[in-house]
Every structure is written in structure tokens, then in C-alpha cells.
Amino acid sequence: MAKKQLFLNYKGGTGKTSIAAAYGYYLAKMGKKVLMVDLDAQAHLTACLNQESVHHEKSLYSVIVNGDPLSEIIIPTQLPGLKLVPSTISLSALEQPLFNMPLREFQLRRALKNVERDYDFIVIDSSPSINLLSLNAIIASDEMLIPLLADFLSFHGLKLLLETLASIERDFQFYLGKIYVFLNRYNPDYPICLESKEAIHKFYPQYALKTVINESQDIINASSVGMSIFEMNPNSKVSCDIRELVKEVNGIYEDAREYAVV
């Protein structure tokens, strides 16, 4: 049964999509069967995996509203073990019909139930907004990964997110398996980064990961050309950080010889 992991932060621009794309790519490269789900109507994850130009006749809209099977909209990517549920602009119109559906917060979970046996990991990239679709994503997930920028505003956003999760637990009696918080675009030369890291470990020790994703232009360049960082520069610092992230979250260790040659 697939482990469902959600990349979420209500604050935009924290690097959720870039890291989620690299994270899923790396899992697939390690031989895992990975399904990535793009829940953002802007389709940035779809673009990161170089699938935005493909015409998508059906989308998650038809799966949730019309009850079409999710398997009909899953598309392959360049990497054999990596599949994608792409996003289209129709997702932006999903909120209203979803609002009127019975058990509206559980529709994504129901849709994923039909395919989760076929994958080892389902990685969900949600939009940075507090809405019914992101609530569906939370309730559909087993674990949540929260990337943070090393600044105060992201820390404040984390506060809102954790309080929202607590209220979801109270209202729905739904509990995530684990929550992971890690820093993105970390630069040890900036005092604010050190201060942020210290604050996360001090106030949220049960969620804080040791791994930080260091500041790098490589991941930005890779996503802008629709390549994975592991294709563009597998030996870059950020590639190493993503590997560490995968290891720390999942306890998955790769064969070190794969990346020995520069």
C-alpha cells in the first residue's frame, strides 16, 4: 500500500513544488513506484515534470465530480517508475461542485484508494491556499512535509498551518501519521537562517528534521527547463540535500556507488 505524502504550506513561494518534484523523482530513480499528484491549478508540478504541453482531456475534476477512475488520468513521465496526475486549469473550478458533494473532504482519499495498491509512494503537491481541495489533500495523506523558508513570515505561516491541522484533528477525528518540517533555501551565512533553524528545533522538536535544503540556483534552473535536478546536476549540493531528505523521512538508503563518479 502506498505511503501518501503531502507537501503543503499555506505560505506560497517556499519551494514546495520544486522540492516535491525532486523528491518524487529521486524516489522513482531509486526504483520505487511513485505517483505524483498535482493539486495546484497553476500546474507547476506538471511543468516541473515537463508535462504541461501534453493535452489533458480529463483531469482530477472529472475524477472527483463525475466519479471517473483515477487511473484514466494518470500519465507517464520520462522516468519509468514515475507517474503523474497532472493538473489543469479546471481544478480552479473544482471548489464549488466539491462544496455540494456529500463527504466532500474525503473525495480525494476515495479517488486515491483505487490506485494506492499500485504504488509505493504517492506524493501530493498542494496549492498554497486554505480551501476544500487542500483539506482533501490533508485528509488523503498519511504524512505531511512542510518546507519553510528561513524567515519570520514562513515561521508565522507554520503557526497557522499547525493550528489548522489541530482543528482538523478535532473536527474530523483525523490524524496524520507524521509531520515533518524542514528549512529550504538555507544559507548559514545569514543570521536569520540560524535563528529560524533554532526556533524550529526549539518550538517544534517533534516535527523538525535535521536536513535542510541549502540555497541553490540549480533547482530553480532545473525546474525552469522541465528537468529534474538529478538529471541536470546529480552531484550538486541541493541534490545531496534532497537525498538526505528522502533518507531521513523514509529511512531509505541508496547504493552510494551510484553517485560516486562526478
Binding site: F152, E163, I168, I179, Y204, Q206
Partner: peptide, 23 residues
């Protein structure tokens, strides 16, 4: 600091919490 005054008042328990009896 601003960090100290912006800590979540309520934290999600999660299933991995040691608290007993989480449904």
C-alpha cells in the same frame, strides 16, 4: 523575539504521538 511570540497555540497530535487512545 518574533519567533517566540508566534508559536502555534495548539499542535496536531498525529498518530505517532505517545498519547494513548487516539482514534
Amino acid at each position: 523575539t518574533k519567533f517566540e511570540t508566534n508559536v502555534a497555540a495548539e499542535l496536531p497530535k498525529t498518530r505517532m504521538s505517545q498519547e494513548p487512545g487516539l482514534p
